[in-house]
Design a protein around this nucleic acid. Structure first.
Lengths: 247, 247
DNA sequence: TTACTATGTGTTTAAATGACACTAAGATAC
DNA sequence: GTATCTTAGTGTCATTTAAACACATAGTAA
């Protein structure tokens, strides 16, 4: 019997029902899964680990673990990512919670999913718990443990949506980048192509994308200009309602 | 000790750790909160109930309850909404999960939040469990029980974002509506105003917004044309990538 | 028939977008 | 040192979209 099917109950009784429920049937394990997209300069990857739980022993899974009782979900995501892969200081955003009842073989586990995108060159993976964290190209993934393929698909849609409206992708590029690197990153991740001149016209119109006065080095052709994204300036303009990033 | 701090463990041991954890410290109560926005024709409301849990006895809260062990989150949202308010057949979408550790006085409760917007005239509220469900104007809310004010604010941002990109708001209008009703709904909810002629030009350009051949009745002035939103046509065009709803 | 009230309509200007092809700068090979 | 190779970088025109703006219209009520 649930509190909501009780009819009129006095307050103390109601709380007792709550307490009983919280201690009993309505408790669920809560896990966090991190969908860490990695960009290499020409392809989109996602960070996976080996799954060691039947019946998924030979499959790969997202980076996840149970959340602790006393931690914020976002902090849990950071902790779990660090414990399993050595990645630190990675800013993640929540995608959503996934909770179909049979998604986990050991019982009900509700998963709260966080995602981000980083450059695979800026971070070293450390196998802290023998789960072999590694980057796998998105295009090579067709099955994952649990419902992680569905989680990945949803997160990828979220990623694609976000990078068109927020300057998220700059975290996945070198600090100084060329406009062609930037264009290709968008093209590779969105799966569409942009007109070079129109793309550059739009980006050059954004004051927070700044030429660094430096040029590409060690290339056997005309070196490209290096630009950088001024996050501070962007945030300031955005507060004033004067910066709308759109691609 | 968590699985991730174990170092090399064999598979069976690993699973035992998981089982132990799932049965012990890492279980949390999971609740669902429904943010049901209601539009009256001139103002935005949200559906609240009386909170009967200390220390929030005299405050109002969102419509929520604990999720059951065997139900999908979305189905749980529908069940809880129906049990507490009598509302049925209300399509909701997930906002996100909220999980700061001290958000609930009885211990850790992670809340998965769903939202929608409906017309307050299309539904009758039934007080099935003495929690007095009722509509409160958004502008009159400054405090709510638990962290529900924060949840409401986040959900309102999600609502405002969604209605500009998806035809969600038509669910909150009469089946047949005038363009002025539609424009005012957008203005009231977004808090901005649109130019009447530009707004109508844009809406008239959407083939799935159809004139019904009917006119407003019983008004003491020139009657307005009644339009309807053809969801079927919209979905069909959208599949073909040929319908982008944007306001 | 006059007044009242909310509905409905078009044009002009500016800004953003889309399409499109050649020159420029440096490295390398001869 | 000249020619060749490779990728970087640039401008214009046509089209579409957005913004600004004021008066005639259809019905009701006096």
């Amino acid at each position: 019997m649930t509190p909501s099917s009780q009819g009129k109950v006095d307050q103390k009784e109601n709380i007792n029902i709550w307490l009983e429920q919280i201690n009993d049937q309505s408790k669920a394990a809560v896990s966090i899964d991190c969908v860490i997209f990695g960009y290499s300069g020409d392809e989109l990857y996602v960070l996976l680990i080996e799954c060691n739980m039947p019946p998924f022993e030979k499959m790969k899974s997202l980076v996840g673990d149970l959340v602790r009782n006393d931690e914020h979900l976002k902090e849990g995501a950071s902790r779990i990512l660090a414990e399993r892969t050595g990645l630190k200081d990675v800013y993640m955003e929540q995608v959503q919670a996934f909770g179909i009842p049979d998604r986990h073989p050991l019982g009900r586990v509700i998963s709260v999913v966080y995602f981000t995108i980083i450059s695979i060159h800026n971070y070293d993976l450390i196998d802290l718990d023998q789960r072999k964290p590694h980057w796998i190209a998105i295009k090579d993934i067709d099955k994952l443990a649990f419902d992680h393929k569905k989680i990945l698909d949803t997160s990828l849609a979220t990623l694609r949506n976000k990078i068109r409206n927020y300057p998220l992708l700059f975290n996945a590029l070198p600090k100084n980048f060329t406009l062609i690197q930037l264009q290709q990153a968008y093209e590779n991740i969105l799966g569409i192509s942009f007109d070079k001149r129109n793309f550059r016209r739009k980006l050059n119109g954004m004051p927070y994308i700044k030429f660094t006065n430096e040029m590409q080095q060690d290339v056997s052709h005309r070196p490209a200009k290096l630009y950088t994204f001024d996050f501070e300036m962007y945030e300031k303009l955005k507060e004033q309602g004067k910066a709308l990033f759109q691609l």
